[in-house]
Design a protein around this nucleic acid. Structure first.
Length: 433
RNA sequence: UCCUCGAUAGCUCAGCUGGCAGAGCAACGGACUGUUAAUCCGUGGGUCCCUGGUUCGAACCCAGGUCGAGGAGCCA
């Protein structure tokens, strides 16, 4: 095949004769004129097929082309103000590659259930392409952020022998003669081991939760990025989370302002407000604020969706809630030495009701305390021997957090449901396509 | 797991008090030289989610089930 020319680079081809390959996104036809909207993955260009300019078989091919047929069009690129792109192609020849009639997705309204069934095709539509593109950038910006600051990416296993927490939310798989393995819920414990090796580590991978959750914020398979830093306390952790969010949101917005504003119709002023400092309140203060807003909640309760929303509405940027009751947090959280009732954890809640996007905190670094926490929660001690070793051979204060990629992307793109933020979402009641 | 709503053409839906299965869009055929969800004319297209019940007669009423959507709980 010739050197591939892409729609994204079409301005450089003005006046030239080129060949584009792609798919027929839409078509409007006249008697001796067809307007083909050709997309190639980088953009959409209108290809004008005039009967007098092309061989008869090419004109017939244009006539018979169906939505999403693959094709190859050759012609001259000309400037045209009537086109959204600014350019169009005057076609001199056209070859239909493949494509049957009956492409199921129309540029009209569809129900979400139908679209989810057609997810493999739905990805081709403008909105989904925009989301894929923003997702790609967000992930790149996350990796760049850590790379630029001396973090080392350390991959954690997906098959694990035990749970971080309760077993009810684990996916179980058979594992040879060793019995059962589980799909990871978090790479954090391994991230801690990594931080003791490289100082600043981050884990980035898919995680799995068998939660029977049917909400706009839950997937059973989602991606999480988890930095973990040696010699960092909770204050440092919050500063890192804040700086990290400001950077990744800022960079992603800078690159995709146009798509966010036009294709996704996102009000980006809300994203522009993501600047330091984020408000920092303790769990106790949050409870008081929620009570003051008229919601019944008592100290010791976890926040539900309603409580989160009430709290977030009081701020115009992400809010950091720290020092949750110890009982609400996992065994590995360090307790506040000034108040053992609370743990040195922090959650970051995104504004506009997008909910918790970060959870993290300072880890327990004392061997005996951690061992007794494991016993208290009736976790199998032998499974955590390796984790306890980290407190035996050069234990240091350390902290980290986990950021949910899909929730963050859903927030940036303004998506009503996280299912659109991942190419092939896995939900409690959906495993296909 | 619980609550609410829904399932009728490829899609989005209407179908009144139980009495012949409908519309728009899409598809297909035709007309049209500047269309932007083009327009105009025509054609084809149904397991009314499934099973059972009530009835002279069920898309419609009843029971059970399946699937989908929204919400709750759950959820670092």
């Amino acid at each position: 095949m010739d050197k591939q020319i892409y729609v994204a680079d079409i301005a450089a081809e003005e006046g030239k004769q080129v060949t584009l390959r792609g798919w027929l996104y839409g078509k409007r036809s006249g008697g001796k004129l067809h307007f083909l909207q050709v997309r190639d993955g980088t953009g959409v260009i209108q290809a004008v097929v005039s009967k007098k300019d092309v061989p008869p078989e090419a004109f017939a091919a244009a006539e018979g082309a169906h939505q999403e047929s693959s094709l190859e069009v050759s012609g001259t690129i000309v400037k045209d103000t009537r086109s959204a792109l600014g350019f169009e192609m005057h076609v001199s020849d056209l070859r239909l590659l493949q494509g049957e009639a009956g492409y199921p997705i129309q540029p009209k309204e569809h129900g979400i259930g139908f679209l989810m069934e057609q997810r493999h095709l739905w990805l081709r539509s403008a909105r989904q392409r925009a989301i894929l593109s923003v997702r790609h950038s967000l992930i790149k910006n996350i990796r760049d952020y850590f790379d630029e600051r001396g973090f080392t990416l350390v991959d954690s296993p997906i098959l694990t022998p035990t749970a971080c927490e309760g077993t009810s939310t684990l996916f179980e798989v058979p594992y040879f003669d060793l019995g059962k393995a589980y799909l990871t819920q978090s790479g954090q414990l391994y991230g801690e081991a990594a931080a003791m090796a490289v100082g600043k580590a981050y884990v980035f991978g898919p995680t799995f939760r068998a939660e029977k959750s049917k909400t706009r914020r839950h997937l059973t398979e989602f991606w999480m990025v988890e930095p973990e830093v040696a010699f960092m306390d909770l204050e440092g952790d919050m500063a890192l989370a804040e700086d990290f969010l400001v950077e990744i949101v800022g960079r992603t917005l800078a690159k995709h302002r146009h798509e966010l504003t036009t294709v996704l119709e996102r009000d980006v002023t809300a994203l522009e407000r993501v600047q330091k400092p984020f408000p920092r309140i303790t769990y106790t203060e949050a409870v008081e604020a929620i009570q003051k807003a008229g919601h019944p909640i008592t100290w010791g309760d976890d926040f539900g969706g309603d409580e989160e929303t009430v709290l977030c509405k009081q701020y115009d940027r992400p809010v950091m809630v720290h020092r949750y009751p110890t009982d609400l947090k996992a065994f590995y959280f360090k307790r506040d030495p000034n108040d053992p009732k609370v743990a040195l954890g922090v959650d970051v809640l995104a504004p506009e009701g997008f909910g918790e996007i970060i959870g993290g905190g300072q880890r327990e670094d004392d061997y005996a305390t951690l061992a007794s926490r494991i016993d208290e929660q009736k976790l199998p001690r032998e499974a955590f021997n390796w984790y306890l070793d980290l407190r035996k051979y050069g234990s240091v204060p350390h902290s980290g957090f986990g950021l949910g990629v899909e929730r963050t992307l859903g927030w940036i793109c303004g998506l009503p449901h996280v299912r659109e933020s991942i190419p092939f979402p896995r939900l409690m009641e959906r495993l296909t396509p």
